[in-house]
Simulated scan of single mutants.
Amino acid sequence: MARFHPLPVAAVDRITDDAVALTLTVPPALREEYRHAPGQHLALRRRAGDGTETRRTYSICSPAPDPGGEGPRTLRVGVRLVEGGVFSTYALKEIAVGDELEVMTPAGRFTLDPAPGLYAAVVGGSGITPVLSIAATLLAREPEARFCLVRSDRTTASTMFLEEVADLKDRHPQRLQVVTALSREEQQAGLPTGRLDRERLTALLPALLPVERVAGWFLCGPYGLVQGAERALRGLGVPRTRIHEEIFHVDTAPPAAPAPAPAHSTVTARLDGRGGTWPVLDGESLLETVLRNRPDAPYACRGGVCGTCRAYLVAGEVRMDRNFALEPEETEAGYVLACQSHPVTEGVELDFDR
């Protein structure tokens, strides 16, 4: 069960003009709870004086701890300023060393279990954060593994974790390949200026590596980039099961207002070993219904992007407004995003523990 704990801030590093890296100290008693797989994320919570709270999800960019050792002593996340963003503005302008942040235990399935082989990633902007953890963990644990990183940024100055990627390349010069495309700046060497879209990636990827031999593709960043990269890979014959995606920003319009729920509809939810049944109000998502009665229900973005509110549909039928977090295999297995789900049948049962 995901839980929040206060973690002290050990370092605040400015990594670009509009981004910082926050290093959090994990006390010995909590290290097992914060043990994470490479690629997982943390939800950070800030409570206002009026009782309202803001939650945002940020990927862990530090390597995952060894399975046989102790849990992590520190966790590092990257935060990029979003125009009008409540939490990102707070992170860049107010958070200081010594502050305590409320941090949820790690979640997410955009992960890699390190194994020998060739792996690759296409990332844009802050999409580098989980992939940095994935690549660093893989190369450290598996001497027979190789990794190809294709990243897209606006300019060199706006590129997050530029030094960290360069250091990783220095440590593994024969096993890490890094290719950078800048959309607003000419490079003396490397790719011509421009965005990485489907057509460009279709031509570029086979020229960089044997696409058919890549054991896993990791696509992370804005929706348009991830969608274009997926279509390019599918067009190149890559099976869907080898493609893993995480969306950081969605440019599509918000979903239309949901249709009214069936009269007298209810949701039964199991959470942290305890269950309950409650009426669903008109227009409510199932997550909103559960939160009215169980404030400890897990969630972060409420936008169908992070996957924190993932639950198993035990009974009934639901309609999801949007889904940018669950793989097709997960939805086929019966999982839904509670924040996007509305009842179609009068009774719905969810299991957050499965």
Rank of each mutant, 00 (worst) to 15 (best):
I247F: 15
A256E: 11
V267F: 08
P254S: 08
R270L: 10
T252K: 14
H249A: 14
D251F: 13
T277D: 00
G276N: 10
L281E: 13
T266M: 02
V280F: 04
A257W: 02
E246K: 03
A269Q: 01
E246H: 02
P260I: 06
A261S: 14
A257M: 03
G273V: 04
G275P: 01
W278L: 08
V267G: 02
R274P: 00
A259F: 09
D251C: 09
S265E: 08
T252Y: 09
V267D: 01
P255A: 10
P258H: 08
G275I: 00
T266I: 03
R270C: 10
P279A: 06
P254A: 06
T252R: 15
W278T: 04
P258M: 04
T252M: 13
P260W: 07
A269F: 08
P260N: 10
P255L: 09
V250G: 09
L281F: 07
L271G: 12
P279V: 01
A269C: 02
E245Y: 06
W278C: 07
H249R: 15
E245S: 14
G273C: 07
S265V: 13
D251G: 14
D251E: 15
V250N: 14
G273S: 05
A261D: 08
T266Y: 00
A261Y: 05
T252H: 12
A257Y: 01
E246I: 03
G275A: 13
A257N: 04
D272V: 01
L281A: 15
T252D: 15
H264V: 03
P260R: 11
E246A: 04
V267I: 11
D251P: 09
G275E: 10
P260S: 12
A259E: 15
F248K: 02
R270T: 14
A253S: 11
V280G: 03
P255E: 06
L271E: 04
P255R: 10
P255H: 11
V280E: 00
P258E: 04
A259S: 15
G273T: 04
P255T: 08
E246N: 01
R274Y: 00
P258L: 04
A256L: 09
P255C: 09
E246V: 02
G273I: 01
V280W: 02
V267Q: 03
G273A: 06
P258R: 06
P258F: 04
A261N: 12
A263E: 12
E246Q: 07
I247N: 11
